[in-house]
């Protein structure tokens, strides 16, 4: 299975992260849930759901963090019987981004965290200079979302 990306500079870092960490599913998105890259998802509806849920979890956890007068939300990990879910927020030249990773018993949270740090560094190195972005409007968001999904499942 190949990683799918909206912008080409994301491809190499995502593929390296997946290969090294042993992640089963990986997604890079903005805090508003706009997907920039994904690996492992086979249906657009799953990507949309996971992105919306991931962004929601990051937002709600971020609010709890803010109530505690702590710096921004950074990392959350959930361990199930057979799968783990890792959600990390990081800064990039494209603004803050979220990484959502689902991993199985063949790897560990330690490895996922370790290679996620490298992944963030790889993205920072690969990211082109920031282009000015306008405010996210509802109409634009839906159009961008549809375009991203079309790219990710082309």
């Amino acid at each position: 299975m190949k990683a799918r990306v909206v912008e080409p500079w994301l491809l190499a870092p995502v593929e390296r992260f997946v290969r090294e960490s042993g992640a089963r599913l990986t997604m890079v998105m903005t805090p508003s849930g706009q997907v920039l890259a994904q690996y492992g998802f086979t249906r657009a509806v799953d990507v949309m759901s996971a992105a919306a849920l991931g962004a929601g979890i990051a937002a709600s956890t971020g609010e709890i963090v803010r109530m505690l007068d702590e710096p921004d939300f950074r990392v959350l990990n959930h361990q199930s019987a057979q799968h783990g879910i890792f959600l990390g927020r990081f800064d990039s030249r494209r603004g803050p981004l979220l990484g959502l990773v689902v991993y199985g018993e063949d790897t560990s949270i330690g490895l996922v965290q370790l290679f996620f740090e490298d992944f963030v560094a790889d993205l920072e190195e690969a990211a082109p200079a920031e282009t000015p972005r306008g405010p996210v409007l509802a109409a634009d968001f839906e159009r961008d979302l549809n375009e991203s999904l079309a790219t990710l499942f082309r």
């Binding site: 790897t107 560990s108 330690g110 490895l111 965290q113 370790l114």
Partner: peptide
Amino acid sequence: GNAVAALAAS
């Protein structure tokens, strides 16, 4: 430490 730990456990 975190890198050694993760890779050593693996």
